[in-house]
C-alpha cells in the first residue's frame, strides 16, 4: 500500500518562484524514501505540502490514504515531522518542550511520563533534559526535535535534512535510529543533500532538480544505471590532459587536488589510462577505483556536483567536502 501519493504536485509562491514543479511519486509503507537535492531544489516545500503546513498550488497529495487538504487534522495526528531548522524555544527546557506537546496532544499523564522518559533516554538527552534549549548544541537540538516528532507514536515520519550540521558520530546515531524506526514498522520520508546518506539509508531515492523529480530508483539501480567505475587520483591539474586524451574531456573532473575519471562501462580502458598517466610523469600513488556513488548519479542527472557550491555557501561546501574526504571513496 502507498503511504504517500503525490500527483502533479505543484507549488508556485506569490513572487512567482516555482518551488515544486508537477511532482509525482509514491512511497510504500515500511520504506525509507529519500528526497535528494541541492539548496533550493524544493525539498522543504514538498515536505511542508505533505505535512499540511503549506498548500500546493495544484496537484494532489494523499498521506496515509488521506487528502492533505481535506483531512488535515487526521493527517497531523498521525505523522511526525522534524523540521529543517529544529524549531525549538530557547527559553524552554527539553522536558518542557515534551510536556507542552504531550499536553496539547492530550496524552494521558501516566503514558506521557513513560513515553517522555523512554524518548529522552533513547536519544541520550536525560542529562540535559532540564536545561534551557538555549544551551543545547546543534546535535542536542536535532535529537530533541526528533523526540518531539515521535512523542505521539506516529507511523510516518518526515525528516527534513535531519543530519545537516551534525558531527559524524551524531549522524551515524541518527541513521541507526532511522533503521530501528523502520524495523519497528515505521515509514520514513527524509530529505538530504548528502548523497552518501541517501545511499546508506534509503530504500528508494528521488533526485530533485529545480523543483522537478529527475529520477526515482533504488540506490543500487541508480548506480548501475550510470555504468562504469570511477577512478580517483590525488593529482595536480596537469594530470587532466593525458587522462582526457584517453577517456574524453567530459569524463574527467578536477576539484580540490583530486582528479576523478568516469571509466566507460564494459570497455576496459584502465590499463591504457594508467599507462598514459604514468608516461606523462603523473605519480599514481593513492589511485583508487570504486563503484560509482550516488554523487556521480547526481552529477550526471543535474549536471552539477555539490562542489560547485563552494563559492556560494562555504559551510555547506565544507561539510560536503569533509564528507567526500571522510567516507566512502576507499582511500582517496
Amino acid at each position: 500500500m502507498s503511504i504517500i501519493e503525490a500527483q502533479g504536485l505543484h507549488k508556485a509562491f506569490d513572487d512567482g518562484t516555482v518551488a515544486v514543479d508537477r511532482v509525482d511519486f509514491e512511497v510504500a509503507e515500511g520504506e525509507v524514501f529519500g528526497f535528494l537535492g541541492r539548496n533550493g531544489a524544493g525539498k522543504t516545500t514538498t515536505v511542508r505540502i505533505l505535512t499540511t503546513l503549506t498548500r500546493a498550488t495544484s496537484g494532489q497529495a494523499r498521506v496515509l490514504g488521506l487528502d492533505v487538504v481535506k483531512h488535515r487534522s487526521e493527517v497531523r495526528d498521525r505523522i511526525g515531522l522534524s523540521l529543517q531548522q529544529a524549531a525549538l524555544d530557547p527559553l524552554m527546557t527539553g522536558r518542557e518542550h515534551l510536556q507542552l506537546i504531550a499536553s496539547l496532544r492530550r496524552m494521558r499523564p501516566a503514558r506521557r511520563t513513560e513515553r517522555m522518559e523512554e524518548l529522552l533516554t533513547g536519544f541520550g538527552l536525560t542529562e540535559v533534559a532540564d536545561r534551557l534549549v538555549a544551551t543545547y548544541t546543534v546535535g542536542m537540538r536535532r535529537r530533541l526535535d526528533a523526540t518531539l516528532a515521535l512523542l505521539h507514536g506516529p507511523q510516518l515520519l518526515f525528516l527534513d535534512e535531519p543530519t545537516t550540521g551534525l558531527d559524524p558520530q551524531s549522524r551515524r546515531a541518527l541513521w541507526s535510529f532511522v533503521r530501528t524506526y523502520r524495523q519497528s514498522g515505521g515509514t520514513v520520508f527524509l530529505t538530504t543533500q548528502y548523497l552518501d546518506e541517501a545511499d546508506e539509508l534509503c530504500d528508494r531515492i528521488a533526485i530533485l532538480d529545480k523543483g522537478a523529480v529527475a529520477v526515482i530508483d533504488t540506490p543500487q539501480d541508480l548506480k548501475k544505471g550510470i555504468g562504469g567505475k570511477v577512478l580517483t587520483l590525488p593529482a595536480t591539474p596537469e594530470a587532466r590532459e593525458p587522462a582526457a586524451s584517453v577517456v574524453g574531456e567530459t569524463a574527467c573532473r578536477f576539484t580540490d587536488g583530486v582528479l576523478q575519471i568516469d571509466l566507460p562501462a564494459g570497455d576496459d580502458v584502465l590499463p591504457s589510462l594508467l599507462k598514459r598517466l604514468h608516461d606523462s610523469g603523473i605519480p599514481l600513488t593513492g589511485v583508487t577505483v570504486t563503484d560509482p556513488t550516488i554523487e556521480e548519479v547526481f552529477i550526471r542527472l543535474t549536471g552539477e556536483g555539490l562542489e560547485r557550491r563552494t563559492q556560494s555557501d562555504g559551510s555547506v561546501a565544507a561539510a560536503a567536502l569533509a564528507r567526500t574526504v571522510g567516507t566512502g571513496r576507499g582511500g582517496v
Binding site: 499540511t52 503546513l53 497531523r76 495526528d77 523540521l83 524549531a87 506537546i101 496532544r105
Partner: peptide
Amino acid sequence: LDAQSGFLDRLRLQPV
C-alpha cells in the same frame, strides 16, 4: 518570532 523560528509550525501540527 515563533512564526519565524518555525515553532508556530510545530504548534500548528498539534491538535490545537
